[in-house]
């Protein structure tokens, strides 16, 4: 195959775009798609100070690198979950990446908060992942607020977003369907949350990471359930193989025609937010204290 732009030997073939690119032209394509994603949803202004959540996965590192090359003001934030083996490996990977590219990095250790994920796991009866996700989001927001950042960016790609949408739709979860998207407004104690890679597939991001020399990293979390989400991704992958372009249509169609309807519904029936009595960060007004403070109590009682 030849590059669609310069006719050199292609290194990436993309069926949904009916195209193939050489390395140089693929990087240009990737940049354009990130730009389109940012502009179409009004994700960023040039003056924004962006905190990029770096898990150590290729998507978040690719996002950090590309935003910095585009000239945005980016700082990485890695949350050290203190999970045996996997956390140290992920942290080392993120630290080496930032050092190599000269990018600023903040590391937050959950251990110093008394919220090491293995302790949280022992203190809870429900699956640890929802608590882990809650804790991570809490610190992304808190550190962004305290540090004067104007946006928190995560590396979610089109496959993540389409699978999440599929899952929310299967449950007809009006709350999630009312605000799922690449931009979540900053208000009432929340910093704006953005997903600039929303137009790019996992495959495209992986190609970009490879071509930019981002190392392979493999130290899976021992608590990962994975299965449900992988099943949904697999189904969408099959759909995409049969009908290239459907995944992006599904997600974009939701953003323009589906979400507004759910948002109206949620405005009528949804709960308002109020500050948590302990940490001051927002929570549903029905609750006295927020989810993270409740987890802190559970860990302390268990100890």
């Amino acid at each position: 195959m030849k590059c669609k732009v310069c006719k050199d030997t292609a290194v990436v073939a993309l069926r949904s775009h009916n195209s193939a690119f050489c390395a140089k032209c693929f990087k240009t394509f990737f940049r354009r798609e990130v730009e389109r994603g940012i502009h179409a949803q009004g994700l960023l202004e040039s003056a924004d100070r962006i905190l990029v959540a770096l898990s150590g996965g290729k998507d978040s590192l690719a996002l950090m690198l590309e935003l910095s090359l585009m000239g945005y003001d980016v700082t990485g934030l890695h949350i050290d979950l203190d999970i045996p083996r996997s956390s140290a490996a992920a942290r080392g990977h993120v630290e080496r990446f930032c050092a190599r590219h000269g990018l600023p990095l903040i590391v937050k250790e959950l251990k110093e908060e008394g919220l090491s994920i293995p302790l949280v796991k022992d203190a809870l009866t429900r699956p640890v992942c929802s608590a882990c996700g809650k804790i991570k989001r809490h610190f992304f927001n808190k550190i962004a607020m305290e540090g004067g950042f104007t946006a928190v960016a995560t590396g979610h790609n089109l496959d993540d977003e389409a699978a999440r949408l599929f899952s929310n739709t299967l449950r007809w979860d009006v709350g999630y369907l009312s605000d799922q998207g690449p931009r979540l407004e900053g208000e009432n104690g929340f910093v704006r949350k953005i997903k600039p890679l929303w137009r790019l597939t996992e495959f495209e991001t992986a190609n970009y990471a490879f071509l930019m020399g981002i190392e392979n990293h493999y130290a899976p979390c021992p608590y990962s359930p994975g299965a449900t989400f992988s099943t949904l991704k697999g189904l969408l992958q099959k759909l995409e193989a049969a009908m290239p372009g459907r995944k992006l249509d599904f997600y974009q169609g939701f953003l323009t025609r589906g979400r507004p309807a759910f948002a109206r519904e949620q405005a009528v029936s949804g709960e308002a937010l109020a500050p948590c009595a302990e940490c001051g960060y927002p929570t549903s007004s029905g609750d006295h204290i927020c989810g993270v403070c409740r987890i802190r109590h559970a860990v302390r009682e268990k100890a």
Binding site: A23, T201, F210, Q237, A241
Partner: peptide, 15 residues
């Protein structure tokens, strides 16, 4: 399936 894995030889990606 196609587009679920990268394939490379000597550091060069292959279609």
């Amino acid at each position: 399936a196609e587009e679920t894995a990268l394939v490379a030889r000597n550091g060069e990606l292959l279609t």
